[in-house]
Design a protein around this nucleic acid. Structure first.
Length: 504
RNA sequence: GGCCCCAUCGUCUAAUGGUUAGGACACCAGGUUCUCAUCCUGGUAACAGGGGUCCGAUUCCCCUUGGGGCUACCA
C-alpha cells in the first residue's frame, strides 16, 4: 500500500479521551506501518462546545504519549500552527470551502434548504416514534418552490441545508475493514442537516469534504460512527468522489459494558499520566484493547516500535472492550520494573517532590548537599521499584525513609514471643556488625546483606526482625539490608541505638 | 419506538469443522521468605440458548436472548 494518509480528528471539548487515544494510536500505527502520513485535524464546528485551550491540550497530551503526527495542527510555543499542503486543518477556518461545496450540492438537488422550526421538527419526531416509525425528516421543504425559497432567504429567515436522500436508491453498502460488509436501506437514512443555521457545517459534511480534500485514504474511527457512515457514503457519491476505506473500531467500555464515560471513572488520558501511569503502559494497554498480534502469539508487552511492526487492521476485534484498571495496574508495574534507577528518578521525582513528607524531609536535610539528596532518593527508588504500581505511589509505603526520628511501639521490636533480652542482644549484635563496616562496604547492598545474613545464622527471625523494625519502625517494609543501604551508616546506627535504648 | 452492530473464563483475548478450548489480569491455595513486595508452583473459571448444514459443530447459516451504538441545527 502506498501513499497511505490517515487522520485523527478530535473535537476540542477539553481533553484527550482514552478512547480517542486508542483511535489516534491505531491511526498512527497504521500510518507508520505503511510508510504513510498521519494527520491531526481539529473538528471545531460546534461553537457551543468550544473549550478554550482544548486543542492545545490535545496536542500536548498526544505528544506526551509519544504519538507524533506528520501533518496538520501543531503547537509552536503556545500558539497553534499548521503544517502541510492541505490546510487549514481546523474546520472553523475552512468555512469558505464548505460554502462553495454545499453550493454545488444544492445546485444539483443533492441538498436543499429547510426552513422548518425546531418545534415542528420535534413534534414530527415525537409522532413518528409514537407510530413506531424511524424518526427522520419528512422532506417538507424539498417541495418548496424556487420562488418561496428566494423569498425566505431574502427575508433572512433562519435555515439549514439538508442532504436529499433518494429513498428509492436501494441499499447503501460499504465494506468496513473490521466489520466486513455493512448494509443499510436508503429509506432508513435521514435527510441529515449539512449546514446549520449558524452557517457552520455539521460533522457529516465537514468530515467528507476534508477527508477528500486532504487525500485521506483510510478512515479509522470509533464504532459510534458506523451508523452515520451511510450518510457519508451518500455524500461521496453526491460529490462524485471516491470514498476512503472505512475501519470502525470497537468501543471502549465501562465495567457495565456501556460506552466508556466520565461518570464511571477517569476517561481523560492525561489523568492517567498524572496518576503516575507511564506513557508506555498506556499505549501498550490501549493497543491491546481491540487488537492482538494473533497467530497464537501470547506476547503482552509491546513497545511502540513493536506495535508499529505488528499492527494489522485485520486483527482488530469487533466486540467492545472493557477498560480494566486492574490489568492496567499490572502492566504499569511491569513497566516500572523495567526502568533503570536513573530513569525512575527522572520520571518519578516530579511525583515525589510534591509530597508533604518529602518537602518536610527535604527542608530538614541541612547537613547533606543536593547531590547526596539525589543519591539518597535514587537509593529509595531502587528499593521501591519492584513494589510500585504507579509513580504517584512513590514513598507512600515507606514513610520511614523520609523522617529524621522514628516513632513506634517498642513491643514491635520483639520477634514473635521473644524476650526483651533476646531482642536487645540481637540489636547490639547488629549495631556492632554495621559499625564495623567501612564506607566501601556500604556502597553495595549485597555486601550488607552478606554480613548480616552470616550473623543471622539459623535464627533469622530472631535477628532480622528486630533489626528491620529498628530501622523502619514498621510492621511491613523492605528487607533490613535494603533499608540500611538506603539510610547509610550514620542513620542506621542512630536508629539502632534508639531501639536498644527502647528495650533496655 | 426505528435502524445498525456485537456475543469464548469476572475482565482482555487465542485457537479450531474433530483440542483435556490455550494465554494474561484478577481471585484462591501452596512454596521461597524476618515482615511486605517480588519470584516460583498449582487451582477455580468460558464457547448465551434453540434450530439447521454436516459423519462431526464453539467454529458455517437462521432464529431467539442478551449487550451496545446511533437515532441533534454534538462530535
Amino acid at each position: 500500500m502506498s501513499n497511505v494518509r490517515v487522520r485523527f480528528a478530535p473535537s476540542p471539548t477539553g481533553y484527550l479521551h482514552v478512547g480517542g487515544l486508542r483511535t489516534a494510536l491505531y491511526n498512527y500505527l497504521f500510518a507508520k506501518k505503511n510508510n504513510g502520513t498521519f494527520i491531526l485535524r481539529i473538528e471545531d464546528t460546534d461553537q457551543k462546545r468550544f473549550v478554550a485551550g482544548a486543542a492545545e491540550n490535545l496536542i500536548k497530551t498526544l505528544s506526551a504519549m509519544g504519538i507524533q503526527h506528520d501533518e496538520g495542527i501543531f503547537l509552536s510555543g503556545d500558539t497553534l500552527i499548521s503544517k502541510g499542503e492541505c490546510g487549514p486543518y481546523a474546520q472553523s477556518e475552512r468555512l469558505e470551502i464548505y460554502k462553495t461545496h454545499i453550493k454545488k450540492l444544492i445546485d444539483s438537488h443533492k441538498a436543499y434548504y429547510c426552513f422548518c422550526s425546531v418545534g415542528r421538527l420535534a413534534a414530527l419526531r415525537e409522532e413518528q416514534i409514537q407510530n413506531k416509525l424511524s424518526a427522520k425528516y419528512d422532506k417538507f421543504c424539498l417541495s418548496l418552490s424556487p420562488e418561496a425559497i428566494e423569498e425566505s432567504l431574502a427575508a433572512n429567515e433562519p435555515y439549514v441545508v439538508r442532504l436529499n436522500v433518494d429513498e428509492n436508491r436501494g441499499d447503501i453498502v460499504f465494506e468496513d475493514t473490521v466489520r466486513g460488509k455493512v448494509t443499510i436501506h436508503a429509506k432508513d437514512v435521514d435527510d441529515q442537516v449539512l449546514i446549520k443555521s449558524d452557517g457552520f457545517p455539521t460533522y457529516h459534511l465537514a468530515v467528507v469534504i476534508d477527508d477528500h480534500l486532504m487525500g485521506i485514504t483510510h478512515v479509522i474511527r470509533g464504532d459510534e460512527w458506523i451508523s452515520s457512515t451511510p450518510k457519508h457514503v451518500l455524500l461521496y457519491e453526491a460529490f462524485g468522489w471516491e470514498a476512503p476505506v472505512f475501519a470502525h473500531l470497537p468501543l471502549l467500555l465501562n465495567p457495565d459494558k456501556s460506552k466508556l464515560s466520565k461518570r464511571q471513572g477517569d476517561v481523560a488520558a492525561e489523568d492517567y499520566l498524572e496518576k503516575g501511569y507511564l506513557k508506555e503502559t498506556l499505549i501498550n494497554f490501549v493497543a491491546l484493547l481491540g487488537w492482538n498480534p494473533g497467530q497464537g502469539n501470547t506476547q503482552e508487552i509491546f513497545s511502540l516500535d513493536e506495535l508499529v511492526e505488528r499492527f494489522d487492521l485485520a486483527q482488530v476485534h469487533k466486540a467492545g472492550a472493557v477498560f480494566d484498571l486492574k490489568k492496567l495496574d499490572w502492566m504499569n508495574t511491569e513497566y516500572v520494573k523495567r526502568l533503570t534507577p536513573e530513569e525512575l528518578y527522572e520520571r518519578g521525582m516530579p511525583f515525589l517532590e510534591v509530597k508533604e513528607f518529602y518537602k518536610a524531609w527535604n527542608s530538614q536535610q541541612s547537613t547533606i548537599n543536593e547531590e547526596e539528596k539525589i543519591e539518597f532518593v535514587k537509593r529509595v527508588l531502587t528499593i521501591e521499584r519492584e513494589r510500585l504500581t504507579k509513580l504517584s505511589d512513590i514513598g507512600d509505603n515507606n514513610p520511614f525513609f523520609f523522617v529524621s526520628e522514628l516513632s513506634y511501639d517498642a513491643a514491635l521490636l520483639h520477634w514473635k514471643q521473644n524476650a526483651k533480652e533476646m531482642t536487645k542482644e540481637a540489636l547490639e549484635k547488629a549495631h556492632k556488625i554495621l559499625s564495623g563496616l567501612n564506607d566501601t562496604d556500604w556502597v553495595k547492598k549485597e555486601t550488607i546483606e552478606k554480613v548480616l545474613m552470616e550473623a543471622a545464622g539459623e535464627q533469622r527471625g530472631d535477628f532480622l526482625w528486630p533489626l528491620r523494625v529498628a530501622l523502619t519502625g514498621a510492621q511491613r517494609s523492605p528487607s533490613p539490608f535494603e533499608v540500611a543501604w538506603v539510610l547509610g551508616k550514620d542513620a542506621s546506627l542512630k536508629r539502632l541505638e534508639k531501639a536498644i535504648k527502647l528495650v533496655s
